[in-house]
């Protein structure tokens, strides 16, 4: 039986978020931003200090990843998801203050994150942890837009085509994690 895959394009508006349900398999195309804990810490510090963020996160998706360096003539190296739990301390703030609509990572999220997702409308996608070479195939372009000094933890702007993921926690709080 062929499983239905929902094609999603960015920006991820509130109505698109509402339509996604836990368990849906999706293929994401458009622009997404990367960020791990070190970058999240800087984003939240910038919000605290009323400074402008290096990217507009409204209706955006953040992918929790620290990619490998690109070999010559390739856009990026292997680029699978990192453990999302390390971003739990920061995600609610970005969801509330920036209208961040989507996150991609691996592993369960805290109750505080799920609460922010249901209150403000945001969805959490799981990508296949450890499938960094496979996922890199869906990334067509990558450029560092902030925090280059963090190395692999810098924020990249990625252009993706049919990035494979699953809705792990939807905006009603329904979750595939037990």
């Amino acid at each position: 039986m062929e499983t239905k895959i929902i094609k999603l394009t960015t920006p991820l508006t509130a109505d698109k978020v509402q339509s996604l349900k836990a368990g849906d398999r999706v293929a994401i195309s458009g622009v997404i931003y990367t960020g791990r804990d070190a970058a999240h810490k800087r984003l939240v510090t910038a919000l605290d200090e009323n400074r402008e963020l290096p990217c507009n996160l409204q209706d955006a998706i953040i992918y929790f990843v620290g990619p490998c360096p690109a070999k010559p003539n390739t856009p990026i190296g292997s680029a699978g998801p990192t453990t999302s739990g390390r971003m739990d301390a920061y995600s609610p703030r970005l969801i509330r203050d920036c209208q961040l609509r989507g996150m991609i990572g691996k592993g369960n999220r805290s109750q505080a994150v799920v609460d922010a997702m249901t209150q403000y409308g945001c969805v959490y996608f799981a990508a296949t942890g450890g499938a960094g070479a496979l996922i890199a195939k869906s990334i067509k372009k990558a450029e560092i837009i902030a925090y280059e000094d963090l190395g692999a933890e810098a924020i990249y702007r990625l252009e993706v085509e049919d990035f494979p993921a699953v809705v792990a926690i939807d905006s009603s709080g329904k979750s595939l994690y037990k």
Partner: peptide
Amino acid sequence: FLRQCILNADIARNEAMPICQD
């Protein structure tokens, strides 16, 4: 997911890419 892991290992070997970015 398991199929993706196997396919990932094939891509990594054939294209000399790290299996995982970590």
